[in-house]
Design a protein around this nucleic acid. Structure first.
Length: 562
RNA sequence: GCGCCCGUAGCUCAGCUGGAUAGAGCGUUUGACUACGAAUCAAAAGGUCACAGGUUCGAAUCCUGUCGGGCGCGCCA
């Protein structure tokens, strides 16, 4: 389909050129020609609004312009059989039926590679996502950002980019101090001391479990859970905090793996600090003259780069504010040579974007290559009412709970169906009780149905070389609709990758499944007519492949049986 | 107060960067299994695209304003 559009685009450009030479048109440079599939089948297979765009420049009636273009249009070699003018001035095209077979053949030949394209030109893209603090288990909100980041990387890969998945672990600074403090207090409580949990500590039960492990001597790094408390504060806090971070991170990795998300790289804030990146950031900003001192602190003049206020980098006591390691980490990303850097963040980190851009620009990095996708909240709904989920109240809904309830396939498909920037409701009752109604089953069922057809004994002798089938026998409207939709898959993948919108693929898969079910109901695949059966089997197999590939992008399984 | 996201069918959401009669799922109503999987299909009902202006051949989409919901705006991270 991409190829056909490209050829048609060239033919149209040539026609405009000829029209100009003949004095029928006056435009020097042709505007970008948009060719799309009309929603209404009655409007042909492809349509362009070229004439209506030219109307403004030519100051002529759009239908007249369309006629002029058609008069000079040469369609040989374009797979387009005919064209006519409709509505306000659309030019509608009918495709040569031979093209249909070509589309199916291409899908079959490409196999698991069907849908891939090269629009990304091998650019390296770093995608950072989830990056939850190592202070507790992953929550249900991460279900969205984890699936989003992972699917985006699949998409980028399919579109010819080279993505890398990265998780940033805040295992230093205040986060760590608080966690270490909590560990110590919990450990003391377990050992019978009467200590209150301080206000700034983490209230979750989870830390108690970790403290118990230490007490019972199950932590390899801390052989004696009681003796650790006799160590100086600096040492005991460090040991307890480090242990808690390691255990938490391991748990997070395990849950993510169950969810089908695997990171290429885990970067720790501690290593960024140890390598001296924060100091480097401050000195670079100083050198470049973007800092000043006031009220005993060192400030970054971020307002000079579009931020709404200046930021403190170094406090009066000489410690860094959180922005410094964050900037340092992003500087590090750029120094690793990526063409594009994408962060997926929650809406609460919105304020982060302007200052990060400002910092990158101040450091002489191409800030326009830094992109932030906001993954909006999931609002949990149970029995028609919002479920509050706050860390402080200890009322948590965990990612692992979600996986337990609905499984990874439904969870991923459900969150990926919606665009990332809409506030979505996740109805727990519906997901749990009516999981059969979840759209993911609709798509998977189509895949399993096709697999079932292919398992039939009658299919056996036909399966040899499906690309050799006689596709001109596929004349039913449901067959043609299915083929048309099949043919757009590579464009959908490329478009979704460029727009960073994986939900388009979920939509596509649902539509494709619907077209297949419609075809299946109308047309029997395996009949007495061998040639027809083979053509239909080929179409079914091409559909199965495409469903499989689309689900693979989403990270959802494509079962042969259900 | 300033900034960002959102407002489309009873509910949850699409709408392909401005196109032709605004779509899907769930729910409601009606119909379809003696051949490949009925977890399916066919059909019906359901809309002031929050509201008001503007831009133009053409607006759910772009601009301005208003209303409503969510979230940010710390020498917390």
């Amino acid at each position: 389909m991409v190829e056909i559009k490209e050829r048609l685009r060239q033919a149209l450009a040539a026609a405009a050129q000829k029209a100009r030479q003949a004095g029928d048109l006056t435009v020097e440079t042709l505007p970008e020609v948009v060719i799309e599939e009309p929603k209404e089948r009655a409007h042909g297979d492809l349509a362009t609004n070229l004439a209506m765009i030219l109307t403004r420049l030519e100051k002529k009636n759009p239908r007249l312009v369309a006629e002029t273009i058609l008069r000079h249009l040469d369609l040989t070699g374009t797979f387009v059989a005919g064209a006519d003018i409709a509505g306000p001035g659309f030019i509608n095209f009918r495709l040569d039926p031979a093209w249909m077979g070509e589309a199916v053949r291409q899908a079959l030949q490409a196999g698991e590679g069907y849908g891939r394209s090269a629009v990304g030109e091998g650019q390296r893209v770093l995608v950072e996502f989830v990056s939850a603090n190592p202070t507790g288990p992953l929550l249900v909100v991460q279900a969205r950002s984890a699936a989003l980041g992972d699917a985006l990387c699949n998409l980028l890969d399919g579109a010819g980019f080279r993505p890398q998945r990265e998780f940033y672990c805040n295992d230093a600074g205040n986060q760590l101090s608080k966690l270490a403090l909590t560990m110590e207090v919990r450990l003391r409580q377990l050992l019978g001391e009467s200590v209150e949990l301080p206000e700034e500590a983490y209230p979750g039960e989870y830390v108690i479990d970790l403290a118990r492990e230490v007490m019972e001597g199950k932590a390899p790094e801390i052989p004696d859970g009681k003796a650790i408390l006799d160590q100086p504060e600096e040492i005991r806090r460090d040991r307890l905090g480090t242990y808690a971070v390691r255990r938490t991170t391991d748990e997070q990795k395990a849950v993510l793996a169950r969810y089908g998300v695997r990171f290429d790289q885990w970067v720790s804030e501690r290593s960024i600090r140890d390598e001296g990146w924060p100091e480097k950031v401050v000195s670079l900003l100083k050198e470049r003259g973007h800092t000043y001192e006031a009220e005993g602190a060192v400030w970054f003049r971020s307002t000079a780069f579009g931020d709404d206020k200046d930021r403190v980098l170094v406090r009066g006591d000489g410690t860094f504010t959180y922005v410094v390691p964050d900037i340092a980490y992003h500087l590090n990303k750029f120094e690793r040579g990526f063409d594009q850097v994408i962060d997926i963040l929650g809406p609460d980190h919105y304020g982060y974007i302007a200052r990060m851009r400002a910092a990158l620009a101040a450091l002489g990095k191409p800030a326009e290559r830094f992109e932030v996708l906001i993954s909006q909240w999931i609002r949990l709904v149970r029995s028609g009412e919002a479920v509050s989920s706050s860390k402080r109240a200890g009322n948590l809904f965990l990612l692992e709970d979600l996986l337990e309830d609905v499984g990874p396939d439904a969870a991923r498909f459900f969150v990926l169906m919606r665009s990332a920037d809409t506030h979505m409701d996740f109805d727990l009752d519906l997901a749990k009780l009516q999981s059969q109604e979840n759209p993911v089953f609709y798509v998977q069922y189509a895949h399993a149905r096709i697999a079932s057809i292919l398992r039939q004994p009658e299919a056996e002798p036909l399966k040899g070389d499906l690309t050799a089938a006689n596709f001109s026998l596929l004349t039913d409207p449901s067959e043609q609709e299915l083929i048309r939709h099949l043919a757009t898959f590579p464009e959908v993948v490329a478009g979704a990758a460029l727009a960073r919108e994986p939900h388009r693929v979920a939509r596509y898969a649902t539509d494709l499944a619907a077209f297949f079910h419609g075809f299946y109901t109308r047309c029997r695949v395996l009949t007495d007519d061998q040639a027809l059966s083979q053509a239909r089997l080929a179409l079914a197999e091409a559909t199965r492949l495409t469903l499989h590939n689309a689900l693979a992008v989403l990270g959802v399984s494509a079962p042969e049986r259900m």
